[in-house]
């Protein structure tokens, strides 16, 4: 589970599942429940899926970079550095989620989306990247760094 390529495949599966939940399922929910000024709900749904998909892809990229870093044995002597590195990757994931949410706001700026729906979309985008990253690294980080993800070990 922690060895390549199994850990990469597992991470991909986790991220895809998250995208299915946040991009397809919750995207469908938002497109049905939000009232838009001009844009059709199909167009909104497509854009939502696309932005979430790109965010998930970037999340997978960050997870992969962490796996590459963690599978180098030299990290065994630099656990302090690894902890900082993990935090950096984690914050990067938050940033990806934030950017995805901001992109969605910009694309729908003239549609008059209410504040509660906007906040919900924001939270969902961050969770899409952050939770996926954390779960993937929690379950399948290389053994050299398996105790570094938050709450691991």
């Amino acid at each position: 589970m922690r060895k390549s390529p199994v850990n990469y495949l597992l991470a991909l599966v986790i991220i895809v599942i998250f995208w299915l939940i946040t991009g397809l399922l919750l995207g469908g929910f938002f497109s049905d429940s939000i009232t838009l000024a001009e844009k059709s709900s199909e167009d909104f749904y497509f854009e939502y899926q696309l932005v979430s998909g790109i965010a998930s892809l970037l999340t997978f990229l960050l997870v992969s970079l962490w796996f590459v870093y963690g599978s180098d044995d030299k990290v065994l002597s630099k656990q302090n550095e690894a902890k900082s590195k993990y935090t950096t990757f984690f914050i990067s994931c938050v940033m990806v989620g934030v950017i995805a949410a901001v992109v969605l706001f910009i694309l729908n700026a003239s549609e008059g989306i209410d504040i509660v729906s906007s906040m919900l979309m924001f939270v969902v985008q961050i969770l899409n990247t952050l939770l996926a990253f954390w779960l993937a690294t929690f379950i399948s980080s290389p053994s050299n760094v398996e105790n570094i993800p938050y709450m691991a070990g």
């Binding site: 065994l76 002597s77 630099k78 656990q79 302090n80 690894a82 902890k83 760094v145 105790n147 570094i148």
Partner: peptide
């Protein structure tokens, strides 16, 4: 212990 407290040998056998 700062640089070893996340290693398996420490976690599994001591912590």
């Amino acid at each position: 212990l700062k640089n070893i407290n996340s290693l398996n040998w420490y976690k599994n056998n001591f912590e």
